[in-house]
């Protein structure tokens, strides 16, 4: 029995008018900042996130360097004006945790062994946040890393699913995140079929868990198409007819 609350207007339609398995509008652009070795900008629903990649470059401090591979460093940061109440600009514990798991979500895709004794820095700046910002940040970071020409095994693409008014839904927004029952952000390598980030907040039964994971991965596959389009657009312009598959 489905109980309908604030978040589900009627069977199958969500508070923002989306269907259960519908993503928010996503727009990804590669190469938006001049100084960065590569950069990207993503709008994922209300999220507006800028990502810059610097490197492979010399490691500072030097003792952090690894003899056989590059060091990947990742900073997820929210601008003070990105949320309803001004956020202290100093990195919070939440931001430090998200920086760590974002790095761990991207690292499996990068062939770091190709760049010994160097550092690759990924800066994820959340300019406006709207639920699911870690997924949007990872998605944009993968585009920037691919655009930077860093050797990769696969793209990393991320999307969340969750439970809202007892229904498993794709890509939960800010309101659904705050009032919903569970949130499951997933990052995925679509060609290698491997999960590189998985977190859950909230309660899910075993069956719901599996359903939620499957739905998040199907969202990742959709986002992956948009990543590839963004990369294709940077190099081939607006030739939408372009048939070649960039992986």
């Amino acid at each position: 029995m489905v109980i309908l609350g604030d978040l589900m207007k009627k069977q199958g339609i969500r508070s923002d008018g989306r269907k259960i398995d519908e993503l928010r509008p996503v727009r990804i652009e590669a190469g938006v900042l001049k100084n960065a070795d590569c950069s990207s900008f993503i709008e994922f629903g209300g999220n507006k996130i800028m990502v810059a990649v610097y490197g492979p470059k010399e490691v500072h401090p030097k003792h952090m360097a690894l003899a056989d591979r590059a060091v990947l460093r990742c900073r997820y940061h929210m601008a003070p004006y990105s949320v309803d109440e001004r956020k202290n600009p100093a990195p919070s514990r939440r931001e430090i945790e998200i920086s760590k798991i974002s790095k761990e979500a991207l690292e499996p895709a990068l062939i770091l062994e190709d760049y010994p004794r160097t550092a690759i820095d990924v800066y994820i700046e959340v300019l406006q946040s709207d639920g699911g910002s870690r997924c949007a940040g990872i998605t944009a970071a993968a585009v920037a890393l691919a655009d930077a020409g860093i050797n990769m095994r696969d793209l990393v693409t991320a999307c969340a699913a969750g439970k809202v008014d007892n229904t498993i839904v794709l890509d939960i927004n800010d309101e659904e995140d705050k009032k919903g029952q569970a949130d499951m952000p997933i990052a995925y390598m679509p060609n290698l079929e491997k999960v590189t980030l998985m977190q859950v907040d909230g309660t899910l039964s075993k069956e719901e868990y599996k359903k939620c994971l499957d739905m998040a991965i199907s969202g990742c596959m959709q986002v992956n198409q948009l990543q590839k389009e963004a990369l294709r657009k940077k190099y081939f312009g607006n030739e939408e007819e372009e048939e070649g598959d960039m992986n």
Binding site: E104, P108, M189, K194, V195, T196, V200, L204, Y209
Partner: peptide
């Protein structure tokens, strides 16, 4: 106690299949 999953964290640079 009801066998529901309430929190999950994946850590480390490894990957997992479904």
């Amino acid at each position: 106690a009801e066998g529901n999953v309430c929190a999950v964290q994946k850590g480390g640079a490894g990957t997992f299949t479904v």
